[in-house]
Design a binder for these strands. Structure first.
Lengths: 356, 356
DNA sequence: AAACGGTTTGTCACCGGTGTCAAAAGACTT
DNA sequence: AAGTCTTTTGACACCGGTGACAAACCGTTT
């Protein structure tokens, strides 16, 4: 015998009226119970609670949505080239809202489209989600945020660095972790280090570049501008980067690539040129969303905690729904720490790190 | 000046009553227009249409959801180990419903959990989606389908082979395409071919195995049972497969691996053992969701058309919403054709194929 | 002109909750 | 015991649509 008891009653789901008459109160009182209003005596609270349990009553979200002008749904807005990022983030969000009545709607948008704002506005006004989660890179667009504010839709932005106040933002600290990893690479003996950058116009490439440069200047290494390649985070551009950086007479002994997919592209070229990795060349990636462990050799990289960020973002967006086990979480935390995963593509010297 | 005109009116969205009074008709008539009921004179249809346009009226989905006991949302039910599959499927679905008022809700479930059915039932009764899309492997579970039928929720199942009637199913034909690819491998000269199978208990591994065996028997090659390894579709199990199949005195000259992630694992081992691919060994994968092109050498594989399957599944699930450009699609089609992508990990002889 | 069948339109209750505000019930004074 | 203030409860309209059914309209027929 399982938890559910309502299928006996000819299969009509019990309504608030059923509960009200069974408990001998008005439906407004039941409504108060549902929304745990403080203005209730313990006695009636108990009566209603019993009635709800015996009927197996569950409030109808559509009716509440109409009355409250708010759908019991949170939306995920993204324009993300990386599937794994999106899915892992979804996993985090869903682990947070698993036992709630909330649904998660995904809404991919087209960053390039001039209708982006109109699209999102129509989505928000039609679906009226409780709130939206905005993934990078569009999380950086202030016009989107202003739209949310105007439409009075709560939001949480995800970023590679804090983009907003703590209740509206979850971030990793890419700059710091990259600095740490590249620092460990330098301490392992490298001086001539290449850098493959991400696309222009977004924040995470800037952060990762900042971390790279920080590490170099901390070690008093002057950066050779010939050793930089500007990619777009895609595998193909990693191939181009590899062709440019590895086909020169004096190759770098190591390359930090701003994400794993491009690192896979560089690796591809290294193989074609017969350059041994590691050995002739060491390679550092960023993201750790699968690709890093599927290539040969597996990449030393930064694990970007996107799943955990999803979980935290959901907690911040709708704390009142996920409160159960999470009251003691620190919802003011903005930074979710990343960590370095040392695999075969590069040897690091993590021990001798000076104080951070 | 953009399309929207309602923000002038103090920002309250126009309701059906506004439209009704502007058009000089009752709100029921407007409702008829919205649901394009046939019982309307051309004259009133025109009046209402004009009123809707001038006000920029959009029906409130929550209200309709309440009245119709149906949420304007389709749900994606999955328990899929492969992130790319899920995201690409989502992309297909969203390309179909982009211009509709529909939302897409994702609902990952836990195949192992004894509460799976209860979970899904609670989700379906609470959210009351228009319909659900069920991804493999849980698309094979008949108890889920019976649940949908009992709750009167429309559904479309995705599979590697037709699982249901044409209105409830979209499928690839894994067996046929694998047979074709392995046949081309045989014609390229291989006789001793290894096989890495997917997990027990699901359909797609069976189909892919069937295709492999078909190709062998069509060429009158007897299969050596020592050349099979049973994996679970994950990278790690590909590594184990590689260790077993490649550490023997007489190695296979080629291996067909039932998915790309495991193929990446086999490749990993080949590199460790210094086995050249191609050259000493040729490798065939299946899926083509990214991994295949990010490894070295890039894999010859089958492109599994999961995105297109998503699009078609959405069309079948809610044809009345996506009808616009799609009337002329064949919604009776069940099989979405796959195709072979020849990259570097194996040379095929596709030309000399006999008739299929 | 009245009766008739078919089409188009409107009325009103209803979907299942919530907001407003007034009434009822308790607690506390005097 | 009556008066006052505070807490708890209920009546009723409302959120924005749809369904059932009745009314109005229209062109024919008798």
């Amino acid at each position: 015998m399982t938890v559910n008891g309502n299928s006996a009653q000819g299969h009509a789901a019990p309504t608030i009226n059923d509960v009200a008459s069974l408990a001998g109160v008005s439906k407004k009182t039941v409504s108060r119970f549902i929304n745990n209003s403080p203005m209730m005596s313990e006695a009636t609270r108990e009566k209603v609670s019993v009635a709800i349990d015996t009927l197996g009553y569950v409030p109808n979200p559509q009716a509440r949505a109409l009355a409250l002008r708010r759908n019991f749904m949170i939306a995920l807005l993204h324009d993300n080239p990386n599937a794994k990022t999106v899915v892992n983030f979804q996993k985090g969000v869903l682990s947070a809202i698993r036992d709630t009545e909330l649904a998660l709607a995904v809404r991919p948008v087209d960053r390039e489209s001039p209708d982006l704002l109109a699209d999102v506005e129509s989505f928000l006004t039609k679906q009226r989600p409780l709130g939206v989660l905005i993934l990078p890179p569009i999380s950086e667009r202030s016009d989107l945020v202003e739209l949310c504010q105007r439409l009075e839709v709560n939001y949480v932005r995800i970023g590679s660095t804090p983009l907003d106040t703590s209740e509206h933002c979850v971030a990793s600290n890419d700059r710091q972790i990259v600095c740490k990893m590249v620092g460990a690479l330098i301490r392992a003996g490298h001086q001539r280090i290449g850098f493959v950058r991400g696309p222009e116009g977004f924040r995470s490439p800037i952060e990762r570049e900042g971390g790279f440069m920080d590490a170099l200047s901390a070690a008093n290494i002057e950066f050779d501008p010939d050793l930089i390649y500007r990619g777009n985070y895609r595998f193909e551009s990693g191939v181009l980067a590899g062709q440019q950086l590895l086909n020169r007479e004096t190759r770098p002994t190591a390359i930090f690539v701003s994400n794993d997919e491009m690192a896979a592209g560089v690796l591809h070229v290294a193989h074609e040129l017969g350059i041994r990795v590691p050995g002739d060349l060491e390679l550092l990636g960023f993201d750790d969303t699968g690709t890093a462990s599927y290539v040969w050799p597996p990449l030393t990289t930064v694990h970007w905690p996107i799943e955990e960020m999803g979980r935290l973002a959901a907690l911040k967006l709708v704390p009142e729904f996920v409160g159960d086990g999470a009251e003691n979480e620190d919802l003011n935390a903005v930074i979710v720490p990343s960590h370095i995963v040392e695999r075969s593509s590069a040897k690091l010297n993590l021990k001798d790190a000076k104080l951070l």
